[in-house]
Design a protein around this nucleic acid. Structure first.
Lengths: 216, 216
DNA sequence: TAGATTGTTAATCGATTAACAATC
DNA sequence: TAGATTGTTAATCGATTAACAATC
C-alpha cells in the first residue's frame, strides 16, 4: 500500500499492463493467471507477479487475478482518474496530431489550453477548442495553473519556452520538439519523445540481418 | 569491428549519441572527452566509453573523441545512409503527422508509398506524394518490395494488415496503432509506439509528489 | 482434500559504475 | 616528459528468473 521506491523499470511497464487488462476486461475476461497473462504479453509469469507485488497482493492463490479489479488498481496507481491540468503549445502537424490522437482524459490529463505563436493559427479552433496566442501564456498560467505542458514547438524555441513555463509553475513536460529538454530542477518531470530514435532501432535491426559467419 | 551481440540497452542509446554528436558537430566542436559528453547527456563517462567500445576503439587516449568521426561511425552502425524502402499506411491525423514530421531520409529510410483505405484520401497528394488505395497494396509490394511499414491504421485493422504485409515480404513494422502488434516470425522486427504510455509515466510522477512520511 | 497459483525469497543474469594500466 | 583520457577489467548494483512454501 505505501509507495516506497518503485523502480523505473516497473513503472514503465504499468501502462502496458493497464492496456492489456483493459482489453481483457472489454472482452469480458473475468480472471487471469500470471501464466496466462505472461503468454499474451510476452513476459515471464515471475516478472508479472514480482511487478504487481510492488504495490500489494492483488491476486489470490489458486485463482489468479481478477481482471477488472487489477485493471482498476493499476489505473489508480497510474492516476488515470486524475484531472491534471494540461496545455499544449505548438499546433504544427505534430501538435495537431497529438491533440487529436492522444486520449488525454484516459491518461488522467485535462487539456485546458492550446497555444500557437502563429497569428493565423491562434484565434482559430481545433476540435472545438480555441487556440490562444503564445503571448497570452503567462496570463493564462497565472489564472489556470496548468501542471503539465506538451511541447510541440520547433527545437530552437523549446528550451526557453520550457524554462518560462517552469517558472510559471508547470511541473511536467511532454516534449516532442527535436532535441532533449533539460531543466536543472530535480522536481520537474521531463519525458522527451524522440520518434526518430525509435525508427532508428528498426533501421539498425534491418542492417544486421543473418550475420552468420563461419565458425573460426 | 565484427558485430557480435550488442545489448539492446546499448542499441537504444545509439540514436541519442548520434543526435548529440550531430549537434556538437553542427556547432563546430571538433573533439570531446567522454567526461564532457557525459555531462551534456546526463550519463556517466564510464558508460559512454563502455558503450562505444562495443564497436571498437573510436577514441584516442589523452585526447578524447573526434566529434565528426564518432558521429559518422555511429551513423554507419545505425545505418542512416541506407535507403530502406518504406511504406506508410493510414493517413489519419497521426499518419499525416508522421509522414511530415519524421525525417525518414535521416533515419536511413526512403518513403516510397503512402496508402489509405478512404477513397476520398486515396488519389490525393501528401507533400507531393500520391496516396494510393490500400487495395493496391499487394500489387505495389510485388513490384516495389518495401522492407519497412509504418502502421497508422485503427487498432482493429492493424493485425490483419501487418500479417498481410509480412506475407508480402515486409520485415519491419513501426506501429502507431493502439494495441501492440505481435507476429510470430522472430525475424520480423516490430517497434510498437504507444504515446499514451509515455504520457502516463508523467501522470504517475505527478501523483506521487513529496511522499515524505514521518520516520517510524 | 487436492490442485492451482500466488507471494516471496534466493539465484542468476545483465547492465552500470569504478578503477587503473595502457598510451597518445 | 607529464598530463590527459581512453580501453578494459573488476566490483557493484539492479533487474529478471527460478523455486517453493503459503494459501486459497
Amino acid at each position: 500500500m505505501s509507495k516506497q521506491e518503485i523502480s523505473p523499470s516497473v513503472i514503465r511497464r504499468l501502462p502496458r499492463y493497464h492496456r492489456f487488462l483493459g482489453e481483457l476486461a472489454a472482452k469480458g475476461t473475468v480472471r487471469i493467471s500470471s501464466k496466462e497473462l505472461s503468454g499474451q504479453m510476452g513476459l515471464t509469469a515471475s516478472q508479472i507477479r514480482q511487478d504487481l507485488n510492488c504495490f500489494g497482493g492483488f491476486g489470490q492463490q489458486g485463482y489468479g487475478y481478477n481482471v477488472r479489479a487489477l485493471y482498476d488498481e493499476i489505473g489508480q496507481i497510474l492516476g488515470v482518474a486524475e484531472h491534471r491540468r494540461t496545455i499544449l503549445i505548438g499546433l504544427g502537424t505534430m501538435g495537431r496530431a497529438i491533440a487529436s490522437h492522444v486520449s488525454f482524459p484516459q491518461c488522467g490529463c485535462e487539456l485546458i489550453g492550446l497555444f500557437d505563436s502563429n497569428p493565423f493559427v491562434a484565434g482559430r479552433d481545433l476540435n472545438g477548442m480555441p487556440v490562444h496566442h503564445t503571448d497570452t501564456l503567462a496570463g493564462f498560467c497565472h489564472q489556470e495553473h496548468p501542471e503539465l505542458a506538451v511541447i510541440c514547438v520547433p527545437e530552437n524555441a523549446a528550451p526557453a519556452l520550457a524554462q518560462k513555463l517552469a517558472a510559471l509553475g508547470v511541473r511536467a513536460f511532454w516534449n516532442f520538439s527535436h532535441g532533449d529538454l533539460r531543466i536543472d530542477d530535480p522536481d520537474i518531470l521531463i519525458e522527451n519523445v524522440h520518434l526518430a530514435d525509435s525508427l532508428l532501432t528498426l533501421t539498425y535491426g534491418l542492417g544486421h540481418e543473418a550475420p552468420v559467419e563461419p565458425a573460426p
